[in-house]
Design a binder for these strands. Structure first.
Lengths: 186, 186
DNA sequence: TTTTATATACCGAACGTTTGGTAAAATTGT
DNA sequence: ACAATTTTACCAAACGTTCGGTATATAAAA
């Protein structure tokens, strides 16, 4: 069998970037083809169900990334709490490109096929919540209060990303990252 | 002059709802025509520049609504601070349908023609910020700190709306409304 | 080792549909 | 009559998608 012209990881990265910037309906197959270096028909060879499958694939990749770089890091009990949090915040900074990228969980939550992505998106947030709740719990919060604080972290992240984007000012996101430890401390 | 088949306010409401739910690229002219009860060509008679103009028109209407129902209310110095805030929070609850609607400022900030809406969107947030900053200032915050707190309110609103939407749980938004007074108090 | 067959990966070209958009006629109220 | 509004009918372009076929690598058969 012939070699793959474009390695999947590169294609995934490009597709991820497009769906982040332009959303689901705003990203056309022509854009996906140009960005990945694959022709439209080749994209259909890799993703027989079409654009929906491409977006869902990217979403599941993001879920995996969140699991290993954030959830698992935050719940890794062998590591000191402070260290875990620092690593997770670095991961967030990387995921969102310092606040200048949109969140794919948000951009794919709106549009024609949004229902198709609902569960995958919700599952990503649940990963984040169990992760941050572990830190809050380690800091002395009760189980339900810890989860509450974890959800506030999600709210802060999403909100700051929205404002960083529309106001073209990453200060919102940077300040959010600084404030997250306070939200998880008693 | 002949009667307009559909009064502008109704048409605006329907277009607003569509752009909120499906974003810019996810809202087609056919959807807009069906929702308003006007044919595509009739929409073009009212908005000669097409979909962009429709969305911008809705956006400017929203800006005006925010100005009168939130900004002006929050800065109305004849009224006691607490009363102003209560009224503004009621307006927010109405604007976002208790947390079950998306924010048009966010949904129009992503997509093909997003640059076309940038300024109008930013201007809406600035209105919100001056409004909430007035409350924070009245509560004893310095000018710059007041503005900072006002921006945190925006972040909280946007974040809670994102999570209310994707998790299908308006609790996020309702809790946000409750917490806003605390963000603006010393 | 060479040949043959098989499976994988890709692509040019076209598909039918939907898109945003337009010209001209018909309708309506003054 | 007139001017504003709506509508029918239409269009080119773009959309997501499919198809026929080619090239490449592996595996089996000779």
């Amino acid at each position: 069998m012939p070699l793959q012209k474009v390695d999947p990881e590169t294609a995934d990265r490009e597709m991820f970037a497009l769906f982040c910037s332009y959303g689901y309906d705003g990203t056309s197959l022509e854009m996906l083809a140009n960005a990945t270096g694959l022709k439209k028909a080749s994209l259909y060879h890799r993703f027989p169900e079409g654009k929906k499958e491409m977006a869902l694939h990217v979403l599941k990749g993001t879920r995996q990334w969140i699991k290993t770089h954030i959830r698992d890091v935050l719940t890794h009990e062998e590591q000191p709490v402070k260290k875990r949090l620092t690593l997770a915040l670095q991961a967030l900074d990387q995921l969102y490109n310092g606040g200048s990228s949109n969140c794919i969980l948000r951009t794919l939550s709106i549009g024609t096929d949004a229902p198709y992505f609902r569960d995958a998106i919700a599952s990503c947030f649940e990963l984040l919540h169990t992760g941050f709740a572990a830190i809050a719990a380690a800091n002395g919060f009760s189980g339900t209060r810890a989860l509450q604080q974890a959800k506030e972290v999600s709210v802060a992240i999403q909100g700051s990303l929205v404002l960083s984007n529309v106001m073209n000012d990453t200060t919102y996101f940077k300040k959010c990252l600084e404030d997250i430890p306070l939200l998880l401390k008693k």
